[in-house]
Amino acid sequence: MIHIEQYHKVDSLEEAYRLLQKYETAVLLGGGAWIRTGSKPLEHVIDLKGLGLDTIIETKDSLSIGAMVSLRAMETHAGIRQLGGGFLSEALSQILGVAFRNTATVGGSIMGKFSFSDLLTPLLMLDVTLQFYDAGPMRLTTFLAQRGRLKDILQAITIEKKACRAMFKKVANTALDFSIVNVAVAIVEGRYRIAVGARPGTAILAESVMAWLDTVESPTEATWKEAGEKVVETIKLGTNQRAHESYRQQLVKTYVARGLKEVSGS
């Protein structure tokens, strides 16, 4: 049993936000799937269920995904399946099993900034804006770069639809394991994007390599290989119980080069 001292079932976002500010140690409950990753007793848990944050709204230009939408609902949504050739749905389908993804939510998976996340890395291939209750809109990249905990409520994420070809690669010991490392590569409106996650740090864009690739006029196989080498020079990779830094470097070099080749169609 998880030790929860006080469970707060709220009727509105206003009430949830007020309680979040009132209690220093308050924790928001999305799907509850990741709550067991921590071992500390929880003094105040604020449940966001039933507040209408569980819908996906698709327009011609964007997809707005409520923070309480399950990973499975996101994975199987027709509009999300079409993004970048379906790479985001494919990435989501590799997170544990269907039953787990029916519980875990988009909001919980983003707000945790989990280093092992197989959602954050592919999301970095897209133009994603987080809609917070108090802070309003915030780019995903800005949110990930922030240190410390943001005491705000994520209401939804908005993905802009853009011409995009993308791939995602998860490397794990078994289908049900966390990633040893994951890599996403894309061409979005003619510009390259590369992200690496489970480094073991949180997912990050290889911005300097992306900028360099945009300057290469006629990229070749050697360009993709060089890009892979540049990524491991610029992005910090480390060692933990899942893999050594040198192994991660080899994986990242290989999958960045393969990914660039794949999305460029060369």
């Binding site: 409950l29 509850g32 449940d47 039953a99 787990f100 029916n102």
Partner: peptide, 19 residues
Amino acid sequence: CTVLMNQKPVLACTVLAVR
């Protein structure tokens, strides 16, 4: 521990009973 919640499979170990 899979059960169906509203006809969808979920892991009963991962769902808080109160929900």
